[in-house]
């Protein structure tokens, strides 16, 4: 695949196009992912998340600058929400990412969520890999403005920075069980504002009480640092950078980094098995004639949905064992039940 070679060669247009193909779920994307995979797993990854307006983009700009200064090549994935009504999106994170804008060793890509929940876009993980393969040894992922449920970034980021700002008041309480739990480092941004010190105290007190990171990725021995920043003036940014790098060293030295990577890869394979087998079973059910009949039973409330699914899956597996499911439900994921004749 010519595109892959150009991408591995550092051709920016090829990288940009590869990201587009991935985002659009183009048929070539699977081949692309396969070809670049051996060239991935090298990049140091960071996630930056926090409520809307907390200064995430400005902070990413500052971090980009500091990683560049230490000789790293930086890829940025910035996610903004897609309108649930029109499917359109305004992706405005680049407005604050000025310093890397003309740097050949920085690549910034804005992604829309396209309906994905969790704070990221559907293919964020694949896009991170493309950047990694193209030679960006540091990849920073910025989530949509996040509150309680947007915790997915921790799947892709070795270090997750949660950005808080003074003045949200009781909302600290509200997100206690949300994104704060995934923080490896907390940045209290806009720290020149009133209430910054009390927010730091409140966060530190909360962290002392426990309830985050215990036995999680960072392990017992990691104390989440709370760093005050004013991203617009770079105040505290060196401290934030140092804290993030200390976390990376902590993960590496405790073996957690490798363990986490293995867990995430396992989870990815599990997720794909679920998707692919689900698609195959669905395709089989719809072509095997059992679909309409079963649905009619469910619609008439003679059978509940769970029993219907159980029955269809059992029949699908029986057919897969006898080798006839392939013929009925064949599709692009054919290799999944390819060994069904055994």
């Amino acid at each position: 695949m010519e595109l892959v070679e150009r991408l591995l060669d550092g051709d920016r247009r090829a990288l940009a196009r590869a990201i587009t193909l991935t985002e659009n779920e183009d048929p070539r994307a699977a081949e692309l992912a396969r070809a670049v995979f051996p060239h991935t797993g090298r990049a140091r990854t960071l996630g930056v998340t926090g409520p809307p307006g907390a200064g995430k983009s400005t902070l990413v700009d500052g971090l980009t600058h500091l990683y560049r200064r230490s000789g790293r090549r930086v890829g940025v994935v910035a996610v903004d929400p897609t309108s649930p009504f029109t499917g359109g999106a305004i992706l405005g994170d680049r407005i604050r990412m000025r310093r890397g804008a003309a740097d050949p060793d920085v690549f910034i890509r804005s992604l829309a969520t396209r309906g994905h929940l969790g704070g990221l876009s559907w293919h964020t993980g694949s896009v991170v890999r493309l950047l990694d393969a193209a030679g960006f040894d540091t990849v920073i992922i910025e989530t949509v403005g996040a509150g309680q449920a947007e915790v997915e970034v921790m799947r892709y980021a070795e270090t997750t920075i949660v950005v808080m700002v003074p003045g949200l008041g009781d909302e600290v309480q509200a997100i206690k069980a949300g994104i704060l739990e995934i923080a490896d480092v907390i940045a209290v941004n806009k720290a020149d504002r009133e209430g910054a010190d009390s927010l730091v105290r409140e966060l530190e007190m909360m962290l002392e009480l426990g309830g985050r990171s215990r036995g999680g990725r960072s392990g017992e021995a990691w104390t989440v640092p709370v760093v005050k920043t004013v991203a617009t003036t770079d105040e505290g940014m060196e401290d934030l950078f140092a804290a993030a790098e200390r976390h990376r060293e902590h993960l590496a030295s405790t073996g957690e980094l490798e363990a986490w990577r293995t867990r995430e890869l396992a989870a990815e394979v599990t997720g794909l098995i679920r998707d692919l087998v689900g698609q195959k079973a669905q395709a089989w059910a719809e072509t095997a004639g059992a679909w309409e009949e079963t649905l009619a039973q469910v619609a008439a409330r003679r059978m509940d949905p769970r029993t219907a699914a159980d029955t269809l899956v059992a029949e699908f597996l029986a057919c897969a064992r006898s080798g006839s499911a392939e013929a009925a439900g064949g599709g692009p994921a054919g290799e999944i039940s390819g060994g069904s004749g055994r």
Binding site: T82, S83, T86, G87, G88, A89, I90, L91, G92, R94, I95, S110, A112
Partner: peptide
């Protein structure tokens, strides 16, 4: 453009 369903990158 957004309302027409497009993804708009606004650079300021």
């Amino acid at each position: 453009y957004r309302d027409a369903g497009m993804e708009v990158i606004y650079t300021g």
